[in-house]
Design a protein around this nucleic acid. Structure first.
Length: 259
DNA sequence: ATGGTCGTCTAACGA
């Protein structure tokens, strides 16, 4: 089984890239963030033709998450306790085969100390409460998406520049640490990885060409699922295409038994 | 160099 996450920064613009990537990689599950589409505009047919079902929680212009899967999705949840009244569509939960999937688009936070930063920390706290309550119910649980947090200095091209800046501040990193303390495992760090492995590069200043990036797209798994994970990698290929998303997909593979 | 680039819509704003 192969499970992936990708912030596409507008599914309308990136649909050709996503379809090409599905064809080349045939993941069982692909969690998307920043679709920026209302539900009526979601390209269900294009994915169906590619062999994928889709569930989605969208809004116009901003945010929007979706889960694509080869097998049917069950028990789809669009809301989280404490975030029911949040108009921002940032979370989607569904079961595929025997895996409970929680797709998140964590708020960016704009700047440390801002109103958006407070919203981000509150949002992370509520999601952690949801995970604490849900995780014991599922042996195979995966929380993945754009976390908008680089968990450690090794996930940042220049930790001095980013010291206590947004995406790297101590309270944000502690929020991620708390998720790990609930038992979730950062699959990427279970394996030997190249130094300076990142999943997001700013569009500006030729950041991708210079590999000035951060690892903010993350796949966290329950212990039972982490135990059968055989690989986790970032696929930089689509970031090098014409008119790319600013994020690259992250892919985790699981040995039979997670099928 | 306190900028730079995208995507949303066509003015700023969010990332």
């Amino acid at each position: 089984m192969k499970i992936a996450t990708w912030n596409v920064n507008s599914l309308r613009v990136r649909l050709p890239h996503v379809l090409d990537w599905l064809g080349a990689n045939h993941p069982d599950v692909l969690a998307l963030q920043e679709t920026k589409l209302s539900d009526e505009q979601f390209p269900v047919e294009a994915f169906m033709a590619a062999g994928y079902q889709a569930v989605y929680s969208g809004q116009k212009t901003y945010n929007g998450v979706a889960i694509l899967s080869r097998q049917p999705t069950r028990n789809v949840i669009h809301n989280v306790p404490g975030l029911q009244d949040d108009a921002q569509r940032r979370v989607l939960t569904a079961t595929i085969a025997d895996v409970r999937v929680l797709n998140v688009y964590v708020p960016n936070g704009a700047e440390v100390g801002s109103v958006k930063y407070a919203y981000k920390l509150g949002w992370l706290n509520k999601i952690a409460g949801y995970v604490r309550e849900q995780l014991p119910r599922y042996e195979k649980f995966v929380m993945l998406g754009d976390f908008n947090v680089a968990p450690a200095d090794m996930d940042v091209y220049d930790p001095k520049i980013w010291f206590e800046k947004i995406l790297c501040s101590t309270p944000e990193r502690e929020a991620i640490k708390r998720l790990r303390e609930l038992g979730l495992v950062d699959l990427f760090r279970q394996f030997e990885q190249a130094e300076k492995s990142f999943s997001w590069w700013d569009y500006r200043a030729a950041a991708f060409r210079r590999n000035l990036g951060l690892r903010i797209d993350i796949i966290l798994a329950s212990p039972a699922l982490a135990a059968v994970c055989s690989a986790c990698r970032i696929d930089k290929t689509p970031r090098a295409l014409e008119r790319p998303s600013d994020h690259a997909p992250v892919v985790a593979e699981f040995m039979a038994g997670a099928q």
